[in-house]
Simulated assay, not measured.
Amino acid sequence: MLRLAASWVWDFWIADDGDRYHLYFLKASRALLDPNRRHWRATIGHATSTDLTTWTEHADAVIPDDSPAFDDMATWTGSVVRQDDGTWRMFYTAVSRSEGGLAQRISSVVSDDLFTWRREAGRQVIEPDARWYETIDTRQWPDQAWRDPWVFQHDGEWHMLITARANHGDPDDRGVIGHATSPDLTTWTVQPPLSQPGAGFGHLEVVQTIDVDGKPIGLFSCLGSELSNARRAQDPIGGVWAFPTDSPTGPFDTARSYRLTDEQLYVGRLVQDRSGSWQLLAFRNDDDNGGWVGEISDPRPVGWVDGQLRLHGSEAAPAEPLRVGS
């Protein structure tokens, strides 16, 4: 478990150098007192582990840039991949002071060793394409959703999955999985979304697609308060969700999503331990009394049960996922 005395920690992502796991996570000072204030003070912390359980904290990986800049207010969730030359690239979400944090963008930094990260001159800043997605000017949501990049290579091309919202549909039901592609990790083209609105989610946060024991699966997170009205009327509880897929690049039928955990855990990430077993890590969100926690859980083993991914030892999920919308 990762719990910091001085800071809350929440969204996170993991890079594996073969010897150690590198955990990157959002953090903000507990001196803020109110955890709802954390988002605008977030930096990207760093810790390492050999077993996914005992973590050693290091200096922060990324902090907001000097003003004026597109990332001068806060740096949010991302992912890390290794480039062909052996260096590492971290993609992250950025918000700026000039827009009050309402517009979200995606960019990247690079590192030789996973400890020291540097911004590049002329790096691309990836923004939503208004042909398919809500923007800051057309949004029907508190902010422009364009964040949480999950980057991976498939069939010789780099793909980025993004928390996004379609530019059509009921305002409470526009959550989609955004998409961008690149031949080289530096030049990106925004593509149409890989899922459709109307699946029951206002947004799908921190998407991950990955093969678990040879079967592709997708994960995302959505709180009960951010489900569509129709889905909430059937079941008001949110948390970490899973959805079946035939390919890590979609298309995805997120209306078939089923809940993997309740809201005590959030931002679930699947990672393989050194024995080859699959584990779920998440941040501890709500305690038994509904209070916010802000720490990273110990790994919990997962496996397939009747065609659905489950936490070992958890109660069985519904045999059929909820279906709402069209």
Rank of each mutant, 00 (worst) to 15 (best):
A317P: 11
A180L: 04
F12K: 01
G101S: 10
D66C: 09
T48V: 14
R82H: 00
A164S: 14
A59N: 00
Y133C: 03
G86W: 03
D235V: 11
I162V: 14
W278S: 04
Q308I: 03
W304E: 10
Q140I: 01
K27W: 08
S29R: 06
R97N: 12
R259F: 05
N289W: 11
N229H: 14
G294N: 11
T209L: 11
P251E: 07
G307R: 13
Q279H: 14
H312T: 13
F252Y: 15
V206Y: 03
S277I: 08
I237P: 07
T48G: 09
D306N: 15
M90N: 05
S228M: 10
D60V: 12
E57R: 13
W278M: 06
G294T: 03
P35A: 09
E120Y: 06
G78A: 10
E320P: 05
A121F: 03
G101N: 07
D148P: 03
E120R: 13
F283C: 03
V109M: 06
L311E: 08
S67Q: 05
W8I: 00
W241S: 00
P318I: 13
D112V: 02
D17A: 04
N167R: 03
T116Y: 13
D298Q: 12
D253I: 04
Y258V: 04
E99Q: 11
S257P: 13
G101M: 06
A31S: 14
D85N: 13
V109G: 00
E320A: 14
W88R: 06
L219K: 00
A282N: 06
A164N: 09
I177Q: 04
R123F: 09
P318F: 15
V240T: 13
R300K: 15
T50G: 04
F12L: 01
R97Q: 13
R123I: 12
T261A: 01
G303K: 13
P64N: 03
S275F: 09
D298F: 07
L281Q: 11
T50A: 09
P318T: 11
R256H: 11
T43G: 10
A94P: 02
E57H: 02
E134L: 06
L311F: 11
D235Y: 07
C222P: 05
R274K: 02
A103R: 15
A282R: 00
F201L: 15
H58C: 06
A166N: 03
D246T: 10
S29H: 05
R82G: 05
D34P: 15
T53S: 12
Q140Y: 08
I106M: 00
Q279E: 14
G268I: 01
